[in-house]
Amino acid sequence: MAFQYPVEVPGVGNLYFLKAALNAVRKHRGESELDAMEFLKLVREKLKILHLDESLLQRPVNAGFSGGEKKRNEIFQMAVLEPSLCVLDETDSGLDIDALQMVAEGVNAMRSPERAIVIVTHYQRLLNHIVPDVVHVLAGGKIIRSGDRQLAVELEKKGYRWIEEHAADAARDAAADTSPASA
């Protein structure tokens, strides 16, 4: 779960936090815990993939980070922890174009058949960089329309009103079809 507003945890070092998290996850998976050297090696690899500076490790978790840094830190954690299901909640909000590109690269690098990634967003912009397999449109807590990436493009052009009206029509039709009094 990558947070829209990652929480600042002053006093807890990023490296220490990540090691605790990774070892907790590994333990759960029945894998052995990593020692300090193995862990550092892994972390450095991931930093490289995401073009992140090593100084990030020594700072307290998200404390005093800029909005973009926080989001990148979320993706970095994702890269280290390698969850099988990732939920990215409005990861694109508050990001400039460069940061957006970096976040997208990080996510793309993690795509694999063994992993599901759910991206929650209001804008199609992020989807130019991370091309989705499936697009669901959510309104009022329900999926009202599903499709491929073209759906997002169309939605961007026509707006949410369009799809809501469209969905309302469809719902009415469906209700009419099943109603016994429709004759």
Partner: peptide, 27 residues
């Protein structure tokens, strides 16, 4: 203890007890 911070740490797989301890040490 900051409930948001607890949630954040736990969302990363860290157990309740260890998360508590981390936040106390940070404090």
């Amino acid at each position: 203890l900051d409930a948001d911070a607890m949630f954040y740490l736990r969302a990363r797989g860290i157990g309740t007890r260890q998360a508590r301890e981390m936040l106390i040490h940070a404090f």
